[in-house]
Structure formats: C-alpha cells, structure tokens
Design a protein around this nucleic acid. Sequence first.
DNA 1: ACCCTATCGTTGCTGATGCAACGAAGTCAA
DNA 2: TTGACTTCGTTGCATCAGCAACGATAGGGT
Lengths: 142, 142
Amino acid sequence: MTFQLDQFLPYRLSVAATQVSRRFAARYAAEAGLTIPEWRVLAHLGQSGAVSVRDVTARVALDKSIVSRAASRLEKAGYVRKSSHGKDQRLVALELTEAGRELMARLGKIAETFQAELLAELGEDGPAFRRALLQLSKATAP
Amino acid sequence: MTFQLDQFLPYRLSVAATQVSRRFAARYAAEAGLTIPEWRVLAHLGQSGAVSVRDVTARVALDKSIVSRAASRLEKAGYVRKSSHGKDQRLVALELTEAGRELMARLGKIAETFQAELLAELGEDGPAFRRALLQLSKATAP
DNA sequence: ACCCTATCGTTGCTGATGCAACGAAGTCAA
DNA sequence: TTGACTTCGTTGCATCAGCAACGATAGGGT
C-alpha cells in the first residue's frame, strides 16, 4: 500500500491550522489590520499586564525577533507602550495603552464568538480535540 | 473575564501544527533536505502517477507558485521529471523518477512510523481528533 | 574591583511565502 | 478563420519568518 498524504496527520493538521487562521484573520481584519504575531502579542499583553519581550516570546510560541518587531509596530500604531524595567535595564516592559485595551476588548469578543462557532462545528469531538492539541503541542526534548 | 490566548483554539491549533511539523521535519531531514512544499509534492506524486501542477496545487493546499518552484527544485535534484502533456500543451506532466520513488519509499516508512507515534500519544482521542481536523479543513464559502 | 560568561532585545540577512502580472496555449462563438 | 476570453505554469516583487550576530547590561567567582 502506498503512502496517502491526505491521511497523514501532520498534513491534515497543517491544512486545518492554515484554514482556521485564514477564517479568523478575515474576522478581525475589519477591526484592525493586524498580522498574526501582532494579534498574539496584543492578546498576551491583554491578559498579563506589563511583561518583557522574553516573557511574551515564551508564551506565544514565536521567535524573539518576531515579537520584537511586532511590538515595535504595535507601539507605532499606539496600542502598546514600551518603558524600561527599573530593576534590570536589559528588559523592556511592554504594556497596552488605553487604545490597546479598547482594541483588545473588541477583538476578544470577536475571538470568543469565533471560537464558539468552531466548537459548534466540532460538536461532541470538541473536548477530545482540545486535549489532543495540548498533547501535540508538547515539544520533545531537544 | 478577560480573553485567554492559551485557551483559544486557533492559537492552540497553530502551535500544535508548528510543533508537529518541526518534529516530523527532524525525522526526514536525515534522509533528504526537503522543505515542506517539496515533501508534499513528492508525496502526492508518489500516490498519483503523472499529474499537472494544477492537480498538485488543488490536492496539497499550496499556491501554484510554490508548487511550481518546489517541482523545479525536485527536478534539479533528480527526483522528478517534467514532460509535456501531449494533448494540452499548457500542462506539464510531473512524475517521480526512479530516484524519486526510492526516496519516497523511504520517507513513506518514516512518515508511517511517525504517525503511529502521534496516534499512540493521542490514545483514544485519535479518531475524534481526525474527524475534527477534517471538519475544520473545510473552507467557508467565498 | 575585576574579568568572564550569560542574558536581553534589536537588527541584518537569507530564503520562503503569497499575490499579481505575464506569455503561451486552448476554447468557443460568430 | 478570426478574435475575445479562459486557463496553465512561470516569474517578479514585496513581505515575512527564522537564524545568527551584535551592543548593552547583569551576575558570579576570585
């Protein structure tokens, strides 16, 4: 029997992820022209207060260079403020501005709605799907 | 309650996909230094005989420019042969060379093994996970 | 106090991505 | 047959991801 690409889990996973990202991006594009890294940084700051680039990097699964650039764009757009961390001068403290909090409040609603739609589509497979994603997200030892 | 990025399905899905792709890439890197598009094109040709770029594009969920470039690289590497489709001169017939079939045979085994590992990790959530991925891969009407 | 090493964040650079435009080839109707 | 329109595959171009290198700062041992 030959190998079937369309039965292959990594492939199916990648296609699904791309598809879902596209659908979601179409939703929030109307509110703000954010890239995915920008959206993730914004969302993380919304739930975490003032944190460093390193913290964000660890949490949102993006390279630090990407987080750095996303933060700079968000700062220029007025959604994020960079200040220096008093204690350790190497660190930068990132936090949302008032405009950033407002934007995040709107995007948060959109995100919740979208997630509800997805879960409705999944029906009873939803919980198992969630568990599976968590399991697969674990990195193997380097 | 504030929005929690790490509970958000599109985010979890994206992280899981990236993670799994990395793990799989690490496996086949030892056999051949393929990019993901190259791997997909190779895999599709392995199961489909001679087909056009358009066919591959539709099947592997990649832009036609990406398929075109991947096919060119695979041709240069000696895994793929491009010939002209007698009937319609616009079409290109892509097919694996002998070297391509050999490589695919080896990669197919690696892929099967890897998939078995993933399914073992998922345990009884595997089938639901599969169904969910298929459901989410469906595009919404444009 | 000093040096040696580690960490933080930014920037450069290479290659990949995705969109649009293009030439070539085919189709269909008048 | 001609001409308008469509489709196929390639290529150009702008952007983005990811890795490495860098300056700046911190910390730890002697």
